[in-house]
């Protein structure tokens, strides 16, 4: 059987820090260092070997990348100094770009749908709006259920002046420029990707 390197080459070129995967020596220190290790479908070590083995579908549909808490334990422990956290973030983003990330995966939904949209809407994160939107993603009933489950947490924070119950805040003053800047940055990034493809 011949090796098919096309997916590996795709990742090296198009996924953030993906070219570092070439350097992985399969020691597994990353897998043993991850706080959510027990919940990974595939450990980082396995993911990297799967990239090299051409398993595009299995890699990009894996829920693994979305288990990353950004604790950076794997980065500081990797004996070959691979920026593993960034590679994993890159694969998660690439799975999204390829339309292969599971839309129901909770962290995928939170990170891409709720969190980024919250930043882009005003320039800053509004925590109350962020939480409400996350809870109500699955409709009114689920939202109310989540709200009730978390009500003591929320009440404790409102009482101590750490949660503003009115989920509205204005935009930053330079919002028009801020928005134009983000659009431009996204356009430059796609231009680079097209040039490399």
């Amino acid at each position: 059987m011949a090796y098919d390197l096309s997916f590996a080459r795709e990742v090296y070129k198009n996924s953030e820090m993906g070219h570092w995967i070439k350097m992985c020596m399969q020691c597994g220190v990353c897998a043993g260092s991850c706080p959510l290790g027990p919940h990974w479908e595939h450990s980082p070590r396995q993911l990297f070997q799967m990239v090299r083995a051409g398993k595009k579908e299995e890699v990009l549909k894996s829920s693994s990348m979305w288990m990353c808490t950004s604790c950076y334990n794997c980065i500081v422990r990797c004996p070959r100094h691979l920026p593993i956290t960034h590679i994993v973030h890159g694969l998660a983003r690439y799975a999204m770009e390829q339309g292969m990330a599971n839309p129901q995966q909770p962290t995928h939904r939170f990170a891409s749908k709720v969190f980024w949209e919250n930043i882009v809407a005003t320039g800053r994160v509004g925590e109350a709006g962020l939480t409400m939107k996350l809870y109500f993603l699955d409709g009114l009933g689920a939202g109310i259920r989540m709200g009730l489950e978390m009500k003591d947490v929320a009440l404790g924070m409102v009482k101590t002046g750490r949660l503003n119950p009115i989920p509205f805040r204005g935009k930053i003053k330079g919002y028009a420029g801020f928005q134009a800047m983000l659009q431009k940055a996204a356009a430059i990034e796609s231009k680079h990707k097209e040039a490399k493809a």
């Binding site: 891409s112 980024w116 930043i119 990034e189």
Partner: peptide, 26 residues
């Protein structure tokens, strides 16, 4: 004055590489 969000830990998903870094650059 008029700072914006830094993108935090999970801005990578919605923001990708350059838009994410543009936040800090601003």
């Amino acid at each position: 004055d008029d700072w914006n969000c830094c993108s935090a830990s999970i801005g990578y998903a919605g923001g990708g590489e350059l838009p994410r870094m543009a936040l800090s650059a601003r």
